[in-house]
């Protein structure tokens, strides 16, 4: 096994040349491999290279099943190989490997020519974020009912850590839903739309669309504004309703969804 007549690499140099092989296909590492039996060094090294690419492909496949259906096998494979070249993993957990995929899809042709593709990828990443976000106790109607009238005006809410507020420019979520039901999606249509994603108390990931009014209210809460500010915003928009009832309707729907975080 010891070959004194060959130049030997330091550990750092050996690791550098092995990574260059895995990432770029550079073959300098072959000089550091002992020839053994009937199996060529190229075959031996390719076991590692194939495993590297197969593992990363499997991650993207698992994280983005509907994106894969939208693209079809050939384009999906093109996306995967492009992303593996574009974004070598710098994370310890494969859970995070494809975090940059939506960004990649906005930059790389032919995907960048169809912005809905990046949006579908982004939607699937937000579902993952909601799925394993931090746990937290949820705000309940009982807690709300214990508030004294004087507490209400300065009351501020916080959202459960799984809550994701997002907006898209294309009908990506509707396309995602159609494919999930194994039906053909509509053609891509440009339409600004807002969505809320979260993990419900049964630990299932949920999402629903939002109107402009609710988006503003949620953003106000995220900015730390209190209940009186929410009511003031609603007052300026509404003429025919008691704004406190309207605000309470929103709060009740958020409590039913389980998206508010408990103060206790």
């Amino acid at each position: 096994m010891v070959l004194d007549n060959m130049e030997k690499n330091s550990l750092a140099s050996l690791q550098k040349t092995m990574m260059a092989f895995l990432l770029k296909g550079e073959t300098i590492i072959e000089k550091s491999i002992v020839k053994q039996g009937n199996v060529s060094n190229k075959t031996r090294l390719n076991i590692y290279k194939n495993a590297y690419q197969a593992r990363l492909k499997e991650v993207i496949d698992n994280d983005h099943p509907i994106l894969g259906m939208y693209l079809g096998d050939d384009l999906f494979d093109e996306m995967v190989s492009g992303y593996i070249d574009y974004s070598p993993s710098n994370c310890t957990s494969l859970r995070d490997y494809a975090n940059q995929l939506p960004l990649f899809l906005t930059k790389q042709k032919p995907f960048s020519l169809h912005p809905i593709i990046s949006e579908i990828a982004q939607f699937e990443r937000l579902l993952l974020d909601a799925f394993d976000a931090e746990d937290a106790k949820r705000y309940t109607k009982d807690e709300l009912q214990k508030l004294s009238p004087s507490d209400w005006l300065a009351l501020t809410f916080r959202f459960h850590p799984s809550v994701q507020l997002t907006s898209f420019e294309w009908n990506c979520v509707e396309s995602w839903q159609a494919l999930k039901k194994e039906t053909a999606p509509d053609p891509a249509i440009k339409q600004t739309n807002n969505w809320l994603l979260w993990r419900n108390p049964e630990r299932l990931t949920q999402f629903r669309s939002l109107n402009e009014e609710e988006v503003v209210l949620i953003r106000m809460i995220l900015n730390g504004e209190d209940f009186s500010a929410l009511c003031e915003y609603l007052y300026n928009r509404t003429t025919d309703q008691d704004v406190s009832i309207l605000a309470l309707n929103y709060i009740n729907s958020w409590l039913d969804d389980g998206i508010l975080r408990s103060f206790s």
Binding site: S10, M18, Y48, Y52, L56
Partner: peptide
Amino acid sequence: WTGAHQVNSHDLLPMPYNNE
């Protein structure tokens, strides 16, 4: 080792078995 230069191969790569 699983990676170098802040890149992770996510594979269990063998070591050279020497004193270094």
